[in-house]
Design a protein around this nucleic acid. Sequence first.
DNA 1: TCTATTTCTGACCGATCGTTCAGGAAATTA
DNA 2: TAATTTCCTGAACGATCGGTCAGAAATAGA
Lengths: 176, 176
Amino acid sequence: MQVFIEQGYDATSVASLASRLGLSKSALYHHYESKEALLEVALDEAIGSLEGVLSEPGARDGSAGESLEFVLRGAVRVLVDKLAYVTLLLRVRGNSDIERAALDRRRAFDRAVTELVRDAQREGTVRADIDASVATRLLFGMVNSIVEWYRPAGAEGAAELADDVLAVALDGLRTR
Amino acid sequence: MQVFIEQGYDATSVASLASRLGLSKSALYHHYESKEALLEVALDEAIGSLEGVLSEPGARDGSAGESLEFVLRGAVRVLVDKLAYVTLLLRVRGNSDIERAALDRRRAFDRAVTELVRDAQREGTVRADIDASVATRLLFGMVNSIVEWYRPAGAEGAAELADDVLAVALDGLRTR
DNA sequence: TCTATTTCTGACCGATCGTTCAGGAAATTA
DNA sequence: TAATTTCCTGAACGATCGGTCAGAAATAGA
């Protein structure tokens, strides 16, 4: 997964995957039936974890505003915990059936969050002067960009990172 | 460029580029000396335009807060105007010298904006409880994510989009 | 120890990749 | 019209790709 991320899925050869694992190419093929099967495992792990956040109680109970906050924190947590897998998911372009299936599930996830934003606008906790789907996309643009730079070695843990994300997303960068 | 974006640079064959252009492969090679030369042209266009924003007067005159706002609007404008080129730039992973050179220029751009954020924190227009480099990365995570979904056909123009981005980034999604 | 299963190797396959090349058509210049 | 330059074709190149295969080594159970 790390090699996929460093070089990109398409630019990564099965030979370089095997070499990183200290195996021969054919030994790798003994465990996985194709290069794409490796990708599928990673994509399932990533999108499954994100979907899992939506089905936790915190994402359903309480006000829409509270649910939205819960989902955002959950998404940051999943991003950090499953960094490699989610990174791959976010870079998928739909070049095969497997990639398209993952994209479909991502779109369904986005749609669910958009509904949450819309509900929060209706209940008055989220400003209504910005289109819900634009707001959601900007929100997740910010959240998802974490995979581009966050490295677990840093002092900042997932919780602090989520605090920062929520602070910027909900209250903005401007001083009051 | 559109094909590069749809399929990803590595997954795109020169044959499919030529076919989209209605040319033969060798005709394409008459105009560009390699596949990577095409990428280089696009990356130069993208990063050059972004660097251009930094050297406009509005990015230097006025307070740090005003400069930051100007640069953010400029970045959104460049993203929309040069959508295909910037999309490619944002997906570069550093697999070759040309890609690494583009990444270096991107990092320099990010560093300059981070300094702007830091100055704005010092002058008090931007909240200081969030690390400047984290704030910058979140900001540009949001801005850059625009390439993933914005399509010029939509009703929303670059200016309105920039308004929304600035609204979320500076004042947050929460109602007051 | 004999057997059965899992794990692995190295050589090899056809397909596709980016790139080259000799030369033909089309357009431009004189 | 003749000469020159630009633009393009189709066939081919070596390299690398993802994947296969026959069988050897390692492991585990009896």
